[in-house]
Amino acid sequence: MTQTLRPPRGLWRRVSDLFYLHPGLLLFLLLVPPMLWMGIIYLGSLFNLLLYSFYSINGFTGQLEYRFTLDTFKTLLTTPANTDIVIRTVLMALAVTLACGLIAFPIAFYMAFYTRGNTRTLWYMLVLLPLWSSYLVRVYAGRLILAQEGVVSWFFAQLHLSWLLDAILKTPVLGGPSLASSYFGMFVVFTYIWLPYMILPLLASLERVPKSLIQASADLGARPGQTFRRVIWPLAVPGVAAGSIFTFSLTLGDYIIPQVVGQPGFFIGQMVYIQQGTAGNIPLAAAFSVVPIVVITLYLLLVRRLGAFDAL
């Protein structure tokens, strides 16, 4: 009686039989549409961008010449203004990465070793919410509190520390007319925006430190400082490295923050934006956008030695 009851699923069942006999066909059908999308639209575009960086703008006619040349890269690397931009951006990315690491460590450490259950979930959400909330709103918030007559200035005034703020603003290079238009202010906003990207991988790697290991280290007579240096830090390094990939790469490519908060001095992202837009020099924009790829690749090679990819 079991055999007789089979609903009329003829076509579906035949297709299903086909997939059973030829699993490769199912794989092919599953993989082809998304991979076509990724391959053609995304990777294809990246490749096209790369091609453009080997084209150039004719100096006389201002027309784009579709001919292979290294001129654009030569312009990029030999113009002092351009190399300044690259150096400035890389330095900023390094500074932001360092600051994120310093601020993130106590948070991740506290979460990993001193929170449990609901408290842990609450802390987790407190880190996650800024990560997922609107990037633009957060950039705006940064500019808003750093404004000349804004919250930060007010606090400094209340604490009778206005002289300190003025001293920071008068510092050559770092300072500016106000925090909202200075490299220092930009640095604060970058750090504020990318901080969660450092906390999460760091937390993930600290969570993997077995509590028993720390106990064992203490039992063996290690002072807290020694336990930290010998036991916790080596295990946290991959997390720090993974987080730094995010903070470094994100700072390197950003063009909104330098535009909203900051000095007239350009950053790589802004150059890409301006060159393709108002300047209309797409080859130079493309060449500039190759710079982050190269720098990030170098950076990845460097941090791979620290085991960052295990913590991603």
């Binding site: 079991t2 055999q3 299903s16 039989d17 059973y20 006999l21």
Partner: peptide
């Protein structure tokens, strides 16, 4: 040998 699981008794 080549029947899918759902077609085997």
């Amino acid at each position: 040998s080549r029947l899918p699981p759902y077609a085997r008794d």
